[in-house]
Amino acid sequence: MSAILPPAERLWWKHPLDRVEGTWIAIAFVWCMVMFFMMVYWHVYGRQNLSTETYKTTPEQFSAKAQAMVDAYTVRTETSMQTPVVAPPAGSDIYMIARLWNFWPILELEKDQTYRLHLTSMDYNHGFSLQPANINIQVVPGYEHVVTVTPNQSGTYSVVCNEFCGIGHHMMVGRIYVK
């Protein structure tokens, strides 16, 4: 009954199981169930669950909303690109545009306050990779993804694009300040 020959016993499915196999299958099954319940458990008790709130959008619609936020809450500009630094009130809807090849605008948030962060891409797929926390979210054009975020540490965070988006991909980086 070698693995490269047909089974010697016609009724191979009646061949008895070795206890090593039976025991391991039982252990492995239990472990798989533990892993399944962990995901559900975390949705109930954990604080880090990715929202799935999503809307169809267009670059024009989304830009208009982002621009309105920038017009209302810009506190200063940074870099030679005059990128606005926006400090929206706690609890509000905040917008970040991913496009070739930057994130716009810079956001300034308060620690332990909650915001509704809207993400979309103006062109290709992009990646929202928050460093050094290492939180990574896919940014897909045409879809507005609303993620509720609560920064728990103050500092300067970078948003690195980690989805390949063309020749300028490695220059695409944005920023979020947490006070």
Binding site: S129, S158, H170, G174
Partner: peptide, 20 residues
Amino acid sequence: TLGVSRRHWDMAFAGNALAY
């Protein structure tokens, strides 16, 4: 685990004002 991106040519972001 430290966050380094895949498919990325320059982890130093050379010349970028917002470099991480």
